[in-house]
Amino acid sequence: MKLIECPRDAMQGLPHFVPTDLKIRYLNELLRVGFDTLDFGSFVSPSAVPQLRDTADVLAGLNLANTPTKLLAIVANVRGASEAAAFPAIRYLGFPLSVSETFQQRNTNKSIAQAFDEVNAIQRLCAEAGKEFVVYLSMGFGNPYGDPYSPELVATFSERLHKLGVRIIAPSDTVGSSTPEAIEALFEPLIRSFPDVEFGAHLHSRPGDVADKVRAAVRAGVRRIDGALRGFGGCPMANDELVGNLPTEEIIQVLSQDGLAPSINQEAFQKAMTLSAGVF
């Protein structure tokens, strides 16, 4: 099971700016834990996400010498992707492609058609730069705007991405609207239909629903799950009540109970948990 830790997603909506040196200390502790991937920052307009305006400086302070963890940075356009791709330490570039037209405009100031053009260009850039491309399908379990939604729509988006060469796709529950039944109904046919695609689950959840959502994803065949320590986060672009990420500590507990827990450094994990209280 691949655990993706998402401090970037957790921090982006904070009203106070987390000092760069504190970000670096927190991320360096997370790098010691043994996560598969760390979603550590983004190369987007500082006016859009001021909290992450120091991503390049943060990257310069990370200790990558003895970690198995790979770095992922979020980008919103080709310019940001080019900037991120210039850093050898970054393995993955992530792009938020929404199945909701309203949210695509709110999140990236583009239509879905324009966003697909960006995806095509970034996929080519990643191939040339030796990076891996992760596309997050935002509002992947419905939206609060009344825009069209169905699991078949997510499958159509996935098919288009597959034809472009994208091999990591993460349907994302941006506002916490998913249910265990919906998670299984979405992922099971996707994984069956596109066996050469790695489908990840980026889920948000209210307290009490985490275990059922994790187990539903696992039953559907998902082997890549995103989380954030203490369940911090939520999407500030959604104009909806923020619903936090799946708490990483609860994901680990559920997977441990079911015999699927990844190997992690427990000492580093506890230190990161302590540091997270100061960050958030």
Rank of each mutant, 00 (worst) to 15 (best):
R124V: 08
R124F: 11
L125G: 09
L125K: 13
C126S: 13
C126H: 11
A127L: 15
A127W: 15
A127D: 15
E128I: 11
A129Q: 15
A129Y: 10
A129N: 09
G130K: 07
G130E: 08
K131E: 11
E132P: 09
F133N: 02
V134F: 12
V134D: 13
V135H: 03
Y136N: 04
L137D: 03
L137I: 07
S138K: 00
S138G: 01
M139L: 05
M139I: 04
G140A: 06
G140C: 04
G142F: 00
G142T: 05
P144S: 07
P144Q: 05
P144Y: 00
Y145N: 00
Y145L: 00
Y145K: 00
Y145D: 00
G146N: 08
G146I: 01
D147V: 01
D147S: 01
D147Q: 00
D147F: 03
P148L: 07
P148F: 06
P148M: 08
P148R: 06
P148Y: 08
Y149R: 04
S150I: 13
S150L: 11
P151F: 07
P151C: 11
P151K: 07
P151M: 10
E152C: 09
L153R: 11
L153M: 15
T156F: 11
T156M: 11
F157H: 07
F157P: 00
F157V: 04
S158Q: 10
S158L: 11
S158Y: 07
E159Q: 15
E159K: 14
R160H: 12
L161T: 08
L161P: 04
L161I: 13
H162I: 07
H162E: 13
H162P: 06
K163M: 10
L164Q: 08
L164G: 06
L164W: 06
V166E: 02
V166P: 01
R167D: 08
I168L: 13
I168G: 03
I168V: 14
I169L: 09
A170E: 14
A170P: 10
S172W: 05
D173V: 02
D173E: 13
